[in-house]
């Protein structure tokens, strides 16, 4: 564990807390893509299958349980909560996310480190995580205005990916640890998807104005 990875894990955790805070305090999920949340739930469930086969550390186990349960809780809230679900922007959230699932499943079957159930699921979850933010970014772009908490949610998610890249660079030099290239390539693609969002986020922060994305 190094400072970059810890910062990455913490910004990831903060992003989820910000999202839960928004849903809890405003009783609204407007601006939040259910499709992205469903993809994250699939990502965590397929990646953390090792919860039942390998023990790494208490920290690792707790974080995995938190990620799986919070992502399922968020999906439940948007779909089933009697107040929250009314604010869901269904007509803006039309990304065909199951196509991403299909494409990532095919890619994982073709490109993986080892042909075992767990390893193919792991590769699938890495590929899917890289593109899971797309429905959310499309929704934000369509709605134009982004409320503060939603903006911060996406910002922290992007920050998490950026810290993970720094973590891999650090591990390479300090531990001679080679991060798997599947993770590296997917991680770079994932972080790049946030570049545009980051640009507008910093402009709005610098001007102290509301975050607006160009149509």
């Amino acid at each position: 564990m190094n400072v970059f990875r810890f910062a990455g894990d913490m910004t990831h955790l903060i992003s989820i807390l910000v999202l839960l805070l928004k849903i809890y305090t405003t009783k609204s999920c407007s601006g939040i893509s259910l499709k992205t949340q469903e993809l994250y739930a699939v990502v965590f469930v397929t990646r953390y299958l090792d919860l039942v086969t390998d023990f790494i550390s208490v920290y690792n186990t707790v974080m995995k349980v938190v990620f799986i349960s919070s992502s399922l809780a968020i999906v439940w809230c948007i779909r089933r909560h009697k107040v929250v679900r009314r604010s869901y922007d269904k007509e803006l959230d039309t990304f065909r996310h199951w196509l991403l699932v299909g494409a990532c499943a095919v890619l994982a079957l073709v490109v993986h480190e080892k042909f075992s159930f767990q390893e193919v699921c792991w590769a699938f979850s890495i590929y899917l995580e890289a593109v899971a933010i797309l429905p959310q970014l499309v929704l934000l772009q369509r709605s134009g205005n982004v409320d503060n908490l939603t903006g911060q949610y996406v910002f922290f998610l992007g920050a998490y990916r950026a810290f993970y890249i720094l973590n891999w660079i650090y591990r390479y030099y300090s531990e001679q640890h080679f991060t798997r290239w599947i993770s590296c390539v997917s991680g770079i693609v994932q972080t790049a998807l946030y570049a545009d969002f980051f640009y507008y986020y910093f402009i709005s922060w610098k001007n102290n104005s509301k975050l607006q994305l160009p149509a």
Partner: peptide, 10 residues
Amino acid sequence: EKEDEIHDEL
């Protein structure tokens, strides 16, 4: 061998 297969990152 087993060490290499463990995914220690989240």
